[in-house]
Structures are given as structure tokens and as C-alpha cells.
Simulated assay, not measured.
Amino acid sequence: MRHPLLVAVLSLATVHFVFAAASRLPAAVLPVITTVAAQQDSTAEKMLAFQRSNGGWPKAVNEVKVDYHHPMSEADLKAARRDAGRTDATIDNNATTREITHLVSAFKTTQNPAYRQAAESGIRYLLKMQQPSGGFPQYYPDAKLYRAQITYNDNAMIKALTVLKAVADKKEDFALVDPALVAPAQKAVDKGVQCILKTQYVQHGKLTAWCAQHDRVTLQPCNARAFELASLSGDE
């Protein structure tokens, strides 16, 4: 059995050797030795690459649907990152809300701070895109054609409110995001609910249903694409 004093001396000698060796390495190599790389989630890494500088995500790029199950090389990821300045962020077809939800979960699993930061940026994007009426447009900041109108189609607005409600309630993984987002998220949910109530269509003096999209100013049902005329919908 080794004497305790001998063990202590050997330990100090080992530490001295490691630091002496490290001091002779190039500076660029030292961070690799002195820090532990953050864990990664392959899907989350793709989401980081597709995130726009305004915090949101696109549903497609050059008319090609964003598919996180599709393998991506490092070159593909770099190409995606170069598109960060695009204004094609949307909440249509689950875009942005699915990324926020996955990134929050990925942060809990990996403790990679980049995932939480990206999710928080996405939440701020939702808060920023909400209109004075409380409604959510299909796209933001792109306001061309019908994209700026309040969008219930494909549950776009409802999914945005669901994410914000989870933030406000600190529900499950959303308890891990910046506490400063809780109050604004609750305010946005309250405004959104009021918008839903105000946009319910009154026909012959009776409350009926909602349209796929409503005018952001008048709150009345409005057209979207040429084949999507203003009409009451049973699936909104």
C-alpha cells in the first residue's frame, strides 16, 4: 500500500506534467483539451442551420420542403446557414413551432446552450409577429398577398398560441427557457384568445364558425389563394 504522502506527490507531479505539456501546444488546440464539447442532437443541429436571423424558420427553401429526416453533409449545413437573412420565416405547416418545441426538448437532453438560445429566439419571433389585433399572420415579415392576414388555416395561429401558453405556464421542458419570456407569452396568449373570440363569424345574428383566414384590420373572413375564397370552415 502506497504511503498517502507519496500518492499526493505523484498526483501533483502528474498535474504539473499535463499543464507543462499543454503549455507547449498551439493555442488553437488548448480549448479542445480544457473544455468538454457540448452534446449534439442531429435534428437540432439541422434546425440551427435553417433558423433565420429574425428567429423564425421556413417551411421550404426554393420550393423544397424542409425535411429534418433528410441527411445533411457539413457542406449542406453551411449552405443552409448562408440563407439566414431570408424573410421566408412562417408558422405555416408547423414551421417555427415544431423547431421551438424540439429545441427545448433537445436542450433538456443535451444541455447544449445553443439549443435553448435558438428556441428562445424562436419564441421572441412569435411574440414579435403577433399583430395588434392579437392575430398571427401566416408569414412574418413577408406581408405579400394573403401572408399578412390572420391565419387559422392548418392550425397555424393555434399552434403558435400553444407554444406561447407552454412558455407562460412553464410547462414541462418550457420551464427551462428564459423566465423573462413568461409574462410576454401570457400577454400574447390573452390577446390571441380575444382575437379568436372577435373573429368568430356572426351570421343572421348567431355565432357560427371561423374562416381559414381573417383580415388583420377588419377581422372579417378574407380570401387567400385564388382557389381559397372567404368561407366558413369546419376544420379551423
Rank of each mutant, 00 (worst) to 15 (best):
P137S: 00
V182C: 08
K206I: 01
K187P: 06
T199G: 14
P221W: 10
L207M: 09
A166R: 10
Q111L: 08
Q131G: 05
Q130A: 08
S121G: 13
P141H: 00
P137E: 02
E228W: 08
E172C: 08
T101Q: 02
A185V: 04
F174T: 06
S121C: 07
F136P: 01
L164M: 07
A148Y: 01
D142P: 00
Y201E: 02
K128C: 01
Q194T: 11
E172A: 14
H102V: 05
Y125N: 02
A209K: 10
L161K: 02
Q220F: 07
Q111P: 13
A114Q: 13
S231C: 14
V177K: 03
S133T: 05
A118S: 15
H204K: 14
L164T: 10
C195L: 06
Q200P: 04
K108Y: 08
Q130R: 01
I150L: 04
R116F: 14
P132M: 04
Q194C: 09
A166M: 06
L164E: 00
H102T: 14
P132A: 04
R147E: 00
S231L: 13
V177M: 12
K171A: 13
T109K: 15
V182S: 05
A166F: 05
N223P: 05
T101M: 10
T208F: 13
T199N: 01
H204T: 15
V189S: 02
V217F: 11
V163C: 14
Y140M: 01
C211Y: 15
Y140S: 00
A148V: 05
Q220K: 13
A183L: 12
T109V: 10
D178N: 03
E120D: 04
T151Y: 09
Y115H: 08
T208E: 08
A156W: 03
Y139L: 02
V167S: 03
L176I: 09
T110Q: 13
P179A: 10
K144F: 08
V202R: 03
I100F: 00
K171F: 07
Q149I: 14
Q131Y: 09
V189F: 15
A160H: 02
A166E: 10
D190R: 07
R216H: 08
K206D: 12
T199C: 02
Q149F: 11
D169T: 15
V177N: 06
C195E: 04
R98F: 00
C211G: 15
V182A: 04
A168V: 07
A160W: 00
A185S: 05
K128T: 08
A148E: 02
G122H: 08
I150V: 03
Q203L: 11
Q203T: 12
A209L: 13
F227A: 15
A230M: 10
W210C: 09
A209C: 13
G205C: 15
D173R: 10
A114K: 12
A168R: 14
A175E: 07
E228Q: 15
L181T: 10
A226M: 05
R147V: 03
I123Q: 02
D173G: 13
Y152Q: 06
V217T: 08
G205N: 04
A224I: 03
A188W: 08
A188T: 05
K144N: 00
L103Y: 07
P137Y: 01
